[in-house]
Amino acid sequence: MTREEVAARVVGVTAQLFAMKPSDIKESDQFTVDLGADSLKSIELVAAYEDEFGLSVKEEEALKVQNVGDAIDFFHRLLK
């Protein structure tokens, strides 16, 4: 899967969870500061990415991801 394909799906999942338009999500958006995620929302987001890509990720690594761009890179790396 190309990075663009991963990005489209990460943005789509993120927009749905935060009830936003995909066009309003930027790669530089930080989950907590810009999107207003609390700790449970951050976990729900990773869980939603897992469902989207059919993967189970390591908790410690996944929870280090801080912004949308990091998430795209993280899943792109796993899906290579």
Partner: peptide
């Protein structure tokens, strides 16, 4: 199970 796997239960709790 990781915290991601139980996130829906935690949402129900909250």
């Amino acid at each position: 199970l990781t915290v991601m796997k139980v996130a829906k239960i935690q949402r129900w709790v909250m």
